[in-house]
Amino acid sequence: MSKPVLQVIIASTRPGRAGRAIGEWFYERAVAGGDFDVELVDLAEVGLPLLDEPNHPRLKQYEHAHTKEWSAIVERGDAYVFVTPEYNHSFNAVLKNALDYLHQEWQHKAAGFVSYGGLSGGTRAVNGLRQVVSSLKMIPVVEAVNLAFYPQFVENGTVKPNDVMTGAADAMLAELAKLTGALRPMRLAAA
């Protein structure tokens, strides 16, 4: 049996963003862990417009090519890690839009979070995300990576992690692997 697919989804699309470097660091950590086939998905490259489908996503009756392409990407995933900034005590609109585009594709899959920001390390963004992913029938893990005052960890576009970050990443990946295996029968039954 092949390894499950973990998609590391970079939420920030801003010029000069730290999300790409943080996402690449986590991606490399996940690949090194060996439990998943890992894909890096950058919402800046996906480039979804604001939700423009006339039918409710739960019907999976997509009319636009960008939605069909996004659906195929997400459908491939067995688990997700959302790399999210914190904007105004929440997660960004680009990520909310990407989540709202689809429904069935997210169901019965594990979700983890790597967040970054100032004092809170993005934890307020993650609190909001937990509610959204739960309503899409994803199962969020408790373990997370939270980077407070993140610029101290990013040098020339590369993350310089400390032991706390790597330990948190490894703990989250282990939990995602367990949960992904446990949820597999539910996904197969739904298919």
Rank of each mutant, 00 (worst) to 15 (best):
A79S: 05
E53P: 00
V94F: 06
S90D: 14
H66E: 07
D52Y: 02
Y80N: 04
F26K: 05
E45F: 10
R29S: 09
N92M: 11
E75Q: 05
P54G: 01
G19I: 00
E86W: 12
E24Q: 14
A98C: 04
Y62G: 01
E39D: 15
N55G: 06
S90H: 14
A32P: 01
R76Y: 08
V31E: 12
V74S: 09
G77H: 05
N88I: 01
W25L: 01
H64W: 14
G34N: 06
A98M: 08
Y80Q: 04
Y87T: 01
A98D: 03
L43S: 04
G77M: 11
P49K: 14
Y87A: 07
L40S: 15
E86K: 09
P49L: 12
G47M: 13
T84W: 06
L50T: 08
A18H: 08
T67Y: 06
E53G: 03
I22M: 12
V81C: 02
P57K: 14
A98Q: 07
H89N: 13
A93Y: 13
I73S: 06
E86A: 06
T84I: 04
L48D: 04
E53F: 03
A21V: 02
L40D: 15
S71K: 09
S71I: 07
E75G: 00
V81K: 07
A65L: 12
N92H: 09
L59F: 13
L50R: 10
D52N: 02
A21T: 00
L50W: 12
R20S: 12
A30V: 00
P49D: 13
R76F: 07
R76M: 08
A98V: 01
G77A: 13
W70F: 04
Y87I: 02
H56R: 07
G77P: 00
A21W: 01
Q61A: 13
V74T: 05
Y27V: 03
A21I: 00
H56D: 06
N88F: 12
A79W: 03
R76E: 05
R76W: 10
G47W: 13
L40F: 15
V83E: 11
P85K: 04
K68E: 08
R29D: 08
E86H: 11
D42E: 14
E86P: 03
G47P: 00
